[in-house]
């Protein structure tokens, strides 16, 4: 009996073993054509910031940007890009609110509804998104079908508790993309009665905490930080995207806002461990659409390295 039991068990394990080998074998065959297709993945990151309720283009008599910009135009452009690219990630770095009568009249409803239709994947909060108070922002949330990621605002003692995310993981084309969000210090910038009991956490340590979690625990292929800190300041020690890039080792991309910085293309910097980190910002007023295309290849490595010699700085023709 015992012998039989063992034999049964043995054959069971044997079956298990050969079964799993066979499954693996078959899998590798059945995935062969797919694998070829997936061995390189292109991820197109499109992003905006500081759109400031500019739904329509600027006035025809505007001194600087006559007939330019507008979320409606960006929506149209993104629609075109989505037809060309398989894996589009659409992000915003805050200050969606405030700047045109659309906000004064409809309090953010138009902005959120349009961004939902544009299929934004995520946004973070800018200082002007507090302009109608925490209540004003909360009231608009039902109009947004995309998440807000705020890592360094602690809303636990406010009505926004559990309404935003500390971090978020998005699957796109087989890639695992980790997102965190950094906001600017509200004191002195936003009236206290508007942000209430919101607690501001140190942006650098918060960012490093969540970036480490996303990269090393959740094994994300790419870690993106949505930031409303601002690109760079004359005040050397003021928290900014440039300063953040030097203090982080797990963030791969910083999508910035607040300083209304226009860049022709993303900036490449070295992070704390001398790896390359990408920083971009797209002006303001929906006058610019930021774009970064990442080409991934399947590797048995979690380490992301943007090799200098393969980095391409080619400029696309302006559309």
């Amino acid at each position: 009996m015992e012998e039989l039991k063992y034999q049964n068990r043995r054959s069971f394990f044997k079956k298990m073993f050969y079964g799993s080998v066979a499954t693996l074998f078959l899998n590798s065959f059945s995935f062969l054509p797919k694998k070829k297709k997936q061995s390189t993945i292109k991820l197109t990151i499109l992003h905006t910031n500081d759109m400031h309720s500019h739904i329509d283009p600027f006035d025809s008599n505007d001194k600087n940007y006559p007939n330019q910009g507008g979320m409606i135009k960006i929506a149209e452009l993104i629609k075109t890009i989505r037809k060309q690219e398989e894996n589009v990630l659409l992000l915003d770095a805050g200050d969606i609110f405030q700047g045109t009568p659309y906000f004064n009249y409809f309090k953010g409803e138009v902005e959120f509804k349009l961004m939902s239709i544009m299929q934004y994947d995520a946004s973070t909060m800018g200082n002007h998104d507090f302009d109608n108070g925490l209540k004003g922002f909360k009231n608009m949330l039902p109009h947004a079908n995309f998440p807000f990621i705020c890592s360094n605002y602690n809303f636990d003692n406010t009505i926004l508790k559990n309404k935003t995310h500390k971090f978020k993981i998005i699957q796109k084309g087989g890639l695992k993309i980790g997102l965190l969000g950094l906001g600017i210090k509200l004191e002195g910038l936003v009236p206290k009665e508007l942000y209430g009991a919101t607690e501001y956490l140190d942006p650098y340590s918060t960012a490093n905490h969540y970036a480490d979690l996303l990269k090393n625990k959740h094994k994300c292929d790419l870690v993106i930080c949505l930031s409303h800190l601002g690109y760079n300041y004359n005040e050397k020690n003021k928290p900014s995207d440039i300063n953040l890039s030097k203090k982080t080792s797990n963030i791969d991309v910083i999508i910035g806002g607040h300083t209304h910085t226009f860049l022709n293309e993303a900036t490449i910097k070295k992070n704390a461990i001398d790896k390359k980190i990408v920083i971009n910002q797209a002006g303001w007023g929906a006058l610019n659409l930021g774009r970064i295309d990442f080409y991934f290849s399947k590797k048995k490595s979690q380490q992301i390295d943007l090799d200098a010699h393969t980095f391409c700085t080619k400029n696309y023709a302006k559309i």
Binding site: L263, E265, N288, G290, R291, I292, K298, N315
Partner: peptide, 11 residues
Amino acid sequence: SYKVTHINSSN
């Protein structure tokens, strides 16, 4: 898991 080979950027 995936490794970045190169990137393009143009705003």
